[in-house]
Structure formats: C-alpha cells, structure tokens
Amino acid sequence: MKIKVAHPLLFSWVFPNTQKSRFSQTTTMLLAEGNQSSGAMFTLLGFSEYADLQVPLFLVFLTIYTITALGNLGMIMIIRINPKLHTPMYFFLSHLSFVDFCYSTTVTPKLLENLVVEDRTISFTGCIMQFFLACICAVAETFMLAVMAYDRYVAVCNPLLYTAVMSQKLCASLVAGPYTWAIISSLTLTYFLLSLSFCGPNIINNFVCEHSVIVSVSCSDPYISQVLCFVIAIFNEVSSLGVILTTYVFIFIAVIKMPSAVGRQKAFSTCASHLTAITVFHGTVLFLYCVPNSKNSWLTVKVGSVFYTVIIPMLNPLIYSFRNRDVKESVQKLMNHSIQLC
C-alpha cells in the first residue's frame, strides 16, 4: 500500500510493498556503476504539459512573487520603523513575514525559469538545497503560527500580565524554537535523502523538489527516509495544531465570559487575522493530505503545491494589513510621508 501526501512536510510514500524487489534488482547495477547521485540531474516537469499557458503562467507567478516580496519585506520594514508596533505580536509577525519571503524565494524563481526555458533540469545539489531550504521555511511557519496563537492566548486571557509574561527573553526563545527545530528536521531528512542513489531518468512531476517526488525517482530503498519523514510530519502537524486548538479553546471561553460586548468584539478582532492565516495554511495542508492516490491527482497536487509555496506567502501580509488597524495606519502614514517628500 502507498500513502501519498503532497505537502513537503506531511506524509510521503510510506510502506511500499515493492521496495524489496526493486532494491534487489538494482543492487547489482549500483555496485557496478557506483553511486552517481552527486552528478545526477533532475527534470522538473512543472506545468510543461500546458504549452499554451507558459507565458500567462509566468506573468501570473511573477506578479504574485513581486507582491509577496514587497508585502513581506514591507511588513518587516513597517514593524521595524514604527515604535508603536514594537510589541510581541508584531515581533512574531515580522518573523512570519521573513519566513514567507524566504519560502517564496526558495521556490518561485526556479518555477519562473522553467516556464520560459526549454531546459527544465536542476542539479542534484540544487534539488537537495531547494528541499532543505523549503523544509526549513515550512516547518518554521508551522510552529511560528503556533507561537502566535500562544501570544494571543496570553493577550486575551491574561491581559494585565501580558507585558510581564511576554518578556523579550521569552519572545526570543519562542522565535528561536521554530527555527531550531526546523533546521534539525530539515538536516535529518536531507541527510537520509543524500544516502539514496539516483541512476535513471530522474523526472519529477512537479515544479519543486519535495521529499515525496525525490524518493519516488530513487533507485535505492527509501524506506527509512520515508518513515522518518512520516514521523516528523505527523509530529509537526499534530503538535502545532494541538497548541493552536488548545489556546483558542481557552481564548473562546475567556471571550464568552467577558461582560462587555465591546470587549468581546475587540478580543475577537485581535485574533481574526491570525485565525485566517491558520485556516488558509493548515486547511491547504490537510486538503492535500486527503488527495486520493490516483493518476489524475497530480494536477491537484501541483495546484495545491502552488498554493502553499507561492500563494500563501503572498496572502499572509495582505491578511494582516487589511484586517489590522495599526498596520493600516502605519502604511497610511508611510505613504503620506512619501507623497510629501515627492
């Protein structure tokens, strides 16, 4: 039985029943030829089957990437230059924007290149590096959203102690945690990918080097790598969602107990942007996990991959800027200042 999941940190191809025979058939060849992985080349098919859409897709993705870069870098700049936004909530938001910018930059430039060139190959080193960096960004974003949920929990449930609880030291630790675990997870998965051999036509039916598609073209037994990816992915998704759901249960109870309707509305408004970002991110991940294992599902997988690697990094700064009064006021002041200078 094969279990397929599109998300790079969610489940891969697990427990394949043909791996033993496949491994035994290729052992002799590998011993004779040696491991050629270091010089292997991969072909990212991307959306090449839609020849007439290459230019329109290039323009669409270029526009999205431009908005993503300007939106996330602009968010970081606004938070840094406005003293009013020097709070734990915006501190975490600036790191979320940084992760989103890095995530999109890791994936989108290669996607754009493959839409305008005939040669869609990527070196073994380039493919592994893309997976390594994308994995760091995806895991970091997963837990950064959980950290932001905890911040909202403290702000709503313990408003009088918020400043004391969310100290600079704690905020720094809460940010360091996702980055540290993301690097450890990515290094571990990458290490086991490097132990695989690639000796055939390494054609990847996607536009990004994900764990599942990399092991699918390997000519050695990827069982350990697949199981490890499965375990890490389960832990990441369950633990992060567990933190988020638990904190919002307490937030909901605290809000319901508030005597003032104005207070309840204000509390809900402070969580609205974060809830929207969580719904978009984890909703996409869970949707892709439910994609059935069929030949026709690859288009859904590609579209879903576009959503969480390209679209979501663009949406997050828009969600927080449109729904957050402080950010909108900061943007307005910055624009007015720029107009006056001109």
Rank of each mutant, 00 (worst) to 15 (best):
M1T: 08
I3R: 06
I3T: 09
I3H: 04
A6D: 12
P8E: 03
W13C: 10
T26C: 07
L30N: 12
A32Q: 02
S37T: 06
S37K: 07
L45M: 14
L45D: 08
F47N: 00
E49L: 07
E49Y: 02
A51E: 10
A51M: 06
L53A: 13
Q54N: 03
F58M: 08
I64A: 14
G74L: 08
G74K: 05
M75G: 13
M75S: 15
I76H: 05
I78F: 10
I79A: 05
R80T: 00
I81K: 10
I81F: 00
K84A: 14
H86R: 12
L96S: 12
V99S: 11
F101Y: 15
Y103I: 02
Y103P: 00
K110A: 11
E113K: 10
L115I: 01
E118N: 08
E118L: 04
T125G: 00
F132W: 12
V139N: 02
A140F: 15
F143K: 12
M144R: 02
L145C: 14
Y150I: 05
Y150S: 01
D151M: 01
A155F: 14
L160N: 15
M166F: 15
G177T: 08
L196F: 14
L196R: 06
S197C: 14
F198D: 04
P201Q: 11
N202E: 13
I203Y: 07
N205K: 03
F207K: 00
C209M: 02
C219G: 02
S220P: 07
I224D: 04
V227A: 11
V231H: 01
I232W: 06
I232H: 03
N236I: 01
L245H: 04
Y248D: 09
V249L: 14
I253K: 13
I253T: 09
I253Y: 10
A254I: 03
V255T: 15
I256Q: 12
I256F: 04
A267C: 08
F268I: 12
H274M: 02
V280M: 06
V285P: 01
L286C: 04
N293D: 14
S294R: 04
N296T: 15
K302Y: 04
V303K: 00
T309Y: 07
I319M: 09
I319P: 05
Y320S: 00
R325P: 01
D326C: 07
K328I: 00
E329P: 01
L334T: 10
L334A: 14
M335C: 06
L341K: 13
